[in-house]
Nucleic acid binder design. Sequence first.
DNA 1: CTGAAAGCGCTAACAC
DNA 2: GTGTTAGCGCTTTCAG
Lengths: 370, 370
Amino acid sequence: MQHRQSLSTMNPTSLLAPHAPRTRRSTIEDVAAAASVSVATVSRALRGLPNVAASTRARVVAVAEALDYTANPAASRLAAGQTRTITTVIPHLNSWYFSTIVAGTEAICAEAGYDLLVLGVGSVNDLSRLLSEAYQLERRTDGVVLVDVPVTSEEVQSITARGVAIATIGTEVPSHPSVRIDDELVGRTAADLFVSLGHQRFGVIGGIRCEPMRFEAPKARYRGFADGLGAAGLTVDGDMLKGGNFSIDGGQEAMSSLLDHPDPPSAVFAMSDEMAFGAIMEMNNRGLVPGRDVSIVGVDDHEFSRVLGLTTIHQNVADHGAAAARLLLNSMQAASRSNSDTGAVADVVTQRVVAPIELIQRSTTGPQLL
Amino acid sequence: MQHRQSLSTMNPTSLLAPHAPRTRRSTIEDVAAAASVSVATVSRALRGLPNVAASTRARVVAVAEALDYTANPAASRLAAGQTRTITTVIPHLNSWYFSTIVAGTEAICAEAGYDLLVLGVGSVNDLSRLLSEAYQLERRTDGVVLVDVPVTSEEVQSITARGVAIATIGTEVPSHPSVRIDDELVGRTAADLFVSLGHQRFGVIGGIRCEPMRFEAPKARYRGFADGLGAAGLTVDGDMLKGGNFSIDGGQEAMSSLLDHPDPPSAVFAMSDEMAFGAIMEMNNRGLVPGRDVSIVGVDDHEFSRVLGLTTIHQNVADHGAAAARLLLNSMQAASRSNSDTGAVADVVTQRVVAPIELIQRSTTGPQLL
DNA sequence: CTGAAAGCGCTAACAC
DNA sequence: GTGTTAGCGCTTTCAG
């Protein structure tokens, strides 16, 4: 299969491979020829490497532009062993929280010239598929953003051993960049609010249910909530903690069982807005008015929260996605520098950012009556 | 840089390229050697091509499995000119409608062993970036799913000319597979509902605003709505059609101006649930009760619609994403077959599916009072 | 049905 | 600073 020759000797489209482009693309050789330099120089010039005379670089860049030349990604990947692709690994795609994160990540990747691969890991098996040798993670991506996916240190090991960079959102893993919020503070904020409103009987809708609780966030939020109440001499009953599965339906069921309790709560802390929505639905069904009969606070500041007037603890989710992408890119860059540098690389690689949160009071919280 | 040799003569990790994997991967040559066949045979066997003895194939497959071998995607891409990647092109990532579609598409791609690239095209310029020669669309993807992105036939031309397959969602382009709903029927359904409830004064919240209306759906929905009313001898005032931008805020503003009208509507057709949510917010602000003071119907059956009790016209968005992915995959397959076949390929390539819709009555619609 | 060999388009030593 | 050259790991003619 000799493209060049067939192109010059016969109908160019006749015998090409099934999916071959119908239009001839310029290659690095074309640019080299047109700029009267070697392909190596073109490669260096275009990638901004040192060891290229400014004048040469300018000429090469100009020629490349004129020829609409860009390196064939497959070829660079094969030759360099890098993919210029990063991958977001997410539990569900169809939830506001996750898709907003992806949006933030996508923006940064696009800006940096990286492709973004999206990988849903609904069940735990999916993660192991990703980690299996056969999947060839390192040949598909230079780095992964793990979004609220719990990983063991062996799993992290197995990823880094392949030369794939890691950043996490919502969780932290040792010696890798991460962005998260202070989940204990989230819980404490909710508690403080309820305490200040004079509530005394509390319910919590968390994430726990059947699943062996591998997620840290719910635990931390609960801890913060209990601590906050404790500071005011108050407590939550163990049986007032219900699992809501971070879904609307789960939130509704949890609220239902909370309200069925002989001594129901006057204030409910839902660990996500979506669960709070379900809880509010259940209140409506029972003719209860949020903020009057029962107060409820959520977490996230989902775009619909203001529609319902939900009091919530805001976090800037899109920013988290973007920030994690930036950290990941930085760490990859630092890692590659470290190979040429002499030894000790600064731990820019291990930045942990704890993003701010903010209580947004709307109408679903009010003072304890009677 | 001779990997093989350095590996056998020295510390394997010492002189590798910066990002080279730390663990040696098996290559097609390893498999060939272990199975005592040529690399060509391995390649054929593993890809299920004909011209391989069943016994040979079985042996090769077994060996490959034992060695955890999978082809290096970059190498296959370079050699074959196919990427085994498909790309979803979407206006916004952070909206329920779009992210749900992506979720559906992702599932199918994963199943088929394709990678899924996500490309946001917020503004129109982004589309032209994708189409620019320099972006090398065909070297990044084998096919694109255009989700509600309006394209001219020149743009379609430019994509197919590169050998990239196309499928669309929400729109149709000549001779390419698509999945959409019957937008006129959507409008008519809304109209019929209002008519049956005895309403006479109508408002419409559509997508139009400043932007030159390139989108077809809003137009078709409006047409259907007007037709449906017409069949009952009713009409919509031209100044009762407001642009809501398909966003919550837009819906709220639109509703606000509708209600400010001297003779406000008793029934409002919002072309998306999200706009309906904004509209309901505005009603709440004014102390109006949806379904009693003003009826409103949305489109989509967004997951929050049931929280608000919104009457809406349901469409199965996740299915649309999956269906489009399947059609795209099929058409790509058909296209590659057509190169080896003699002539005429069936027009499986051009399937258009019109997905069903369903009216879901909840509490935001009620009979006309007084 | 199978093997040999020529690329795909680029990057990275290594020499000059 | 720049050119030469040897691969990266696969696919695909072309012979047999």
